[in-house]
Nucleic acid binder design. Structure first.
Lengths: 226, 226
DNA sequence: GATGCGACTTGACCCCGATCAAATAACTTT
DNA sequence: AAAGTTATTTGATCGGGGTCAAGTCGCATC
């Protein structure tokens, strides 16, 4: 891990992100003040479940995987965070204890902000508080979605859903590139890699073609029916 | 459904709840102003997923079940809310759309507050905003816990966990009464009722006795090992 | 374009938990 | 307390997905 200071492109990524974009510019700048940037290799651990953390993290580039560990060492992904996402914010209000492990799912650059400072700001400034509230609502809803998918959908259905979530409305045929390794996608969907693979081959009969990381859809309706 | 006004015991339940207790009394009172109370029969639906809701709800007595519906009509519980819990708050910040169905899991009394008013208050008053933030963090963590349990634990392990969460530290032998029907517990744990029943009989060999709603533990350690 | 390694797929097998059906227990009502 | 519900348990069966073991593919490197 190497630590650096914010570059000007970093600032752009930050200020354009959902969280900061809704804040008045000076407020956002105030938070950026004192931010530290660090780079990490794939598989590096940023922090562990139940560990004390005193920073809030922001993904400048790369991918973070949040996961919990079972007693037997098995891992359950809680969330996959791409560029522009914040994590570790909930720890601020939960005794500063991380609720999950955070790992770089690929080469990664993060910015970190002192959480006591951010928390202080949230306590004084309603804009910051609002931004946090919206962040937490969005994350909460995503976790709920995940839980419901796990309980209601089979593997092929989850994959179909995932694909559809990347397919703009209206288009019936469509193709895109997976934003990460199938490995990671499997974890995100709560599946073993083998199960993801099998799900893709099941979906072949509904017009889904997989070539490396590129997914092609021939028939949106068929997927929706699945 | 019948609608009433707040009784004085209602006020006590509200003001003693985690959400309101952390607010300055006058602020709390301001929110209670204009609250409406309604009673519901078991199985009544309070609102449906994606429906517009303009209130935040508070459980005065009874039990609420939040669940999502699958395309095939199957249901997945997102949360079970006992007396003192708030729900529907996240909708305030998500276009006023409910993220799940809400149903009375037993005879129920709820208070409701106009969400635009509460939201307004949160935007002006940092105490209210803080209270909301903490609420959302707690709920978020609970959903995460649920997701991780689903992915990491077998049915008997989830049940063992649930029992342990009701067993004060230190005690090795212990007994308590389930706060709701096994039916509801099954849903909360993401199990079919039959699976819950079988889980209980599996745990019998680890010193768990079930008589109606009463659960008795002979050996805490055995449960923890499970 | 050959080589090599890691990512992905496929096959075989098995276990957990869903589902359906039926029996039993626990409550309500009367 | 008897009758009728409604909850819960138990049995039997089945399917989805996890795991382990081979392959095979894709991609980077030279």
């Amino acid at each position: 891990m190497k630590t650096l200071r914010l570059t000007s492109t970093d600032r752009t990524v930050l200020l354009d992100s959902r969280f900061f974009a809704r804040l008045p510019r000076p407020t956002a700048e105030a938070i950026l003040e004192g931010a530290i940037v660090s780079t990490h290799e794939e598989h590096d651990i940023l922090f562990r479940q139940d560990e004390r953390i005193d920073d809030v993290f922001f993904v400048l580039s790369g991918l973070v995987r949040l996961y919990r560990l079972g007693k037997d060492g098995r891992e359950a992904d809680i969330a996959i965070l791409p560029k522009g996402e914040i994590f570790g914010a909930n720890a601020m209000f939960l005794e500063h204890r991380a609720t999950a492990n955070a790992q770089a799912a690929e080469a990664l650059i993060v910015a970190r902000f002192e959480s006591h400072k951010l928390r202080q700001l949230a306590a004084e400034n309603t804009d910051v508080a609002q931004a946090l509230i919206e962040l937490l609502c969005r994350h909460g809803k995503m976790t709920e979605d995940c839980l419901a998918e796990d309980r209601l959908l089979t593997a092929p259905q989850r994959v179909a859903n995932y694909i559809l979530s990347h397919c703009p409305d209206g288009l019936s045929t469509f193709s895109f590139r997976l934003p990460f390794q199938k490995n990671v996608l499997a974890g995100k969907l709560g599946l073993a890699p083998e199960a993801l693979s099998r799900a893709f081959s099941t979906l072949r009969q509904s017009g889904v073609t997989v070539k490396g990381r590129v997914i092609e859809i021939r028939d949106r309706q068929a997927l929706e029916r699945f």
